[in-house]
Structures are given as structure tokens and as C-alpha cells.
């Protein structure tokens, strides 16, 4: 792509990533959640893939990183699900909620949403797991598209 597109993508990339991680982390308080935040993060990565050449971008974003992200997200979700069974309750039982001192363990205040990030038990952790999984999966789709674009060798800009 042209120099204007590359400069705009480089400028917008950190803001898109921070907004995506904000949506993932505040999934239990505000609209959005793991899937939406992961889609926004993958949008930032797709922006870099669309703006830069394959030769330069494949040095920064490796295919193995996205594979690890996808697998790690799925494993984290299933692990937190089966931890409920391990504690003697059902699958995906919220065993971390309302325990003072535990991570994300504070009780939710009554009434209007106070915006306390340290609540929710395993729900924020499941949001993070889904976010990491969606980030890896959607980025892999973009990556394989670009790989076949380069393999076919139609475009002179990418092949060079």
C-alpha cells in the first residue's frame, strides 16, 4: 500500500489495540466482552497486515504466536470450567466470586453499576480467555489469506 496508508496504520495501531484490551478487561462491567474485544484487537492486526508488505510484517507477527494464542485461550477456558467440578460443583461454577482477598473476588455493590473492576469471580478470566482465543483465530484467517496472496505471486508489490 501507499505511504499514506502505512503511516495512518502505524498511527492508529496502538489506539486500536488499547481499545480492544479495554473492552476485554471491562467485559463484565460494560457492553462488549471477550468476543467483541478480540475482534477489535484482530482488526488492529488486520490493519497492519493490509497496510504493510508480507516480507516486513511476517518478521513481526509470527504464525506460531497466533496458534499459541488460540490454543492457550481454549485451554484456559476449559481449565476454569473443570475447576468448578474439581471444587465439587457443576461445570463453570463461579468458585472465585465474593471471596475477599481473591483475584476478582470483591462483592458487587447494590444499585447502579459502580464500575469496580475487581469483581465477577471467574467471569473476567473467561472473558480474557475468549479474547485471546478470538484474537488468535481471526488473525490466523487474515494470515492465511495473505500467505496465499503471496504464493500465487500475482501482485508485484508483495512478490518482490
Amino acid at each position: 500500500m501507499s505511504k499514506i496508508v502505512r503511516a495512518a496504520a502505524d498511527f492508529l495501531y496502538p489506539f486500536v489495540m488499547i481499545f480492544g484490551f479495554y473492552i476485554v478487561l471491562h467485559g463484565h462491567l460494560t457492553p462488549g466482552g471477550g468476543f467483541q474485544g478480540g475482534a477489535v484487537i484482530a482488526t488492529g492486526i488486520a490493519l497492519m497486515f493490509a497496510a504493510h508488505r508480507y516480507r516486513e510484517i511476517s518478521l513481526i507477527f509470527k504464525k506460531a504466536i497466533f496458534n499459541v494464542c488460540e490454543t492457550f485461550g481454549l485451554l484456559m477456558f476449559i481449565t476454569f470450567g473443570f475447576a468448578g467440578i474439581f471444587f465439587g460443583k457443576s461445570f463453570l461454577y463461579n468458585w472465585m466470586v465474593n471471596i475477599p482477598g481473591m483475584l476478582f473476588g470483591e462483592a458487587v455493590a447494590y444499585g447502579q453499576n459502580a464500575g469496580n473492576l475487581n469483581t465477577g469471580g471467574i467471569i473476567p478470566l473467561l472473558n480474557i480467555a475468549v479474547g485471546v482465543e478470538v484474537l488468535g483465530a481471526l488473525s490466523l484467517i487474515i494470515y492465511y489469506m495473505l500467505t496465499y496472496v503471496v504464493k500465487m505471486g500475482v501482485n508485484k508489490e508483495d512478490a518482490s
Partner: peptide, 21 residues
């Protein structure tokens, strides 16, 4: 949010890469 992320972002990137090839 999902529509803005997937529809405006990822679909456009895939379509642009298909046009490039």
C-alpha cells in the same frame, strides 16, 4: 462493537487482500 470490528475491519481486510491477489 462486534459489527464495527468484524464488518468494518476484518471483512474489509480480507476483501482488500482478495482484490490485491
Amino acid at each position: 462493537i462486534a459489527e464495527a470490528g468484524i464488518g468494518a475491519g476484518i471483512t474489509t481486510a480480507i476483501l482488500i487482500q482478495a482484490v490485491r491477489s
